[in-house]
């Protein structure tokens, strides 16, 4: 590992990340198509901050998570974690993998039912450190205490826990190696309202305490509004609008962001917005529409949208990829 002072760099700096998957076609000699799961995402994430990635299923959120956690490597683009190049050198990667941990969506599927909580928590230590058994146990108990699990639960199996507690175990597992970054892939969407509140509180407390950076993937905009600092809205593999949470929530400019915000149901009448009807569904990423990928569902579509793909540019304190962004500023939405 090169000697770099990691504190002065943003914990994640991603530039134009792309991930294409080959999809074989019917027919013997036909060339495989490439599915553009992620098609150019750039962002920086600083220590102790939260970046929320929002979008419908199939927009590339989870692919982004897999790239950041180095489960897969990008087809193109640069990824620096704590100032170190995370693409390429195997040795660097191994060290960086400790810095990035992940919490999965479904706490029923992400814990091995045959292992006790203690074993689950100690596994990352076994692989990455040379602590002895009692040190590992001590560390596991310490983290369990942090996430609000009691000592007696060390020897229990996952099936003995409720959904909320399982998610706590998953969070504890992610924290075992003192990471800088936790990628949370829809961590609360499988939970009930009251348990969701507890889990969100836990995540926010841990962030303050350990100065963690979160990459928070979610489709629930009310949760995102609560927990994030910056947000990135994605559509069909591309970020369409990204910037500070307050800027975007107060005045979304991209028609897709507007539609997402308007489609989110609200309990309080005053926070409800007029529904913007999005017709149709997400187009296939194998065969995206020409021009702006959103134009077929967009209410503000103009001729240029059909031919020319828009690029991310800065408009009104945010990055946005829409030809009509300037016009939409004055739109009384």
């Amino acid at each position: 590992m090169t000697d770099v002072d990691t504190t002065q760099y943003p914990v994640i700096k991603a530039e134009n990340l792309k991930k294409y998957y080959p999809v074989s076609q019917e027919g013997f000699l036909k060339k495989p198509l490439s599915l553009k799961a992620l098609d150019g995402a750039s962002f920086t994430l600083n220590k102790g901050k939260t970046l929320a990635v929002v979008g419908e299923s199939g927009c590339g959120k989870s692919t982004l998570a897999r790239l950041i956690t180095m489960i897969e490597s990008p087809t193109e683009g640069n990824l620096h974690i704590g100032g170190i190049n995370a693409v390429g050198n195997k040795k660097d990667k191994k060290i960086l993998r400790r810095k990035v941990q992940i919490v999965f969506q479904d706490p029923y599927g992400s814990l091995n039912p045959r292992k006790k909580v203690g074993t689950i928590l100690e596994e990352p230590l076994k692989i990455n450190t040379d602590l002895n058994a009692s040190q590992m146990r001590e560390k596991a108990l310490h983290i369990m205490d942090k996430v609000g699990l009691s000592k007696e639960q060390y020897n229990r199996y996952p099936h003995m826990f409720s959904g909320g507690q399982r998610q706590r175990i998953a969070v504890a597992r992610a924290l075992m190696l003192n990471p800088d970054i936790v990628v949370a892939d829809e961590p609360v969407s499988a939970l009930d309202v009251s348990v969701q509140a507890q889990t969100l509180n836990l995540l926010m407390d841990l962030q303050d305490e350990m100065n963690l950076a979160y990459l928070f993937i979610s489709h629930d905009l009310s949760v995102v509004r609560l927990i994030s600092d910056d947000i990135m809205v994605m559509y069909l593999g591309r970020p369409v609008e990204q910037g500070d949470k307050n800027v975007i929530f107060e005045k979304p400019l991209h028609p897709y962001t507007m539609a997402l915000l308007a489609a989110t149901p609200h309990v309080d009448v005053k926070s409800r917005q007029k529904r913007i009807r999005l017709s149709g569904e997400l187009p296939s990423p194998l065969n995206p529409p020409p021009g702006c990928t959103f134009h077929r569902r967009c209410a503000y579509m103009t001729d240029i949208c059909k031919h020319k793909p828009p690029h991310l540019r800065e408009v009104a304190n945010r990055m946005i990829s829409c030809h009509n962004a300037e016009k939409l500023i004055n739109n009384s939405h």
Partner: peptide
């Protein structure tokens, strides 16, 4: 339940929770 909704606590750092199960 209503108090625990993120929607009603946009600017706070903690959500009110219901203790227990």
């Amino acid at each position: 339940l209503l108090n625990a909704l993120p929607e009603r606590n946009i600017n706070s750092k903690r959500l009110p929770t219901i203790p227990g199960l």
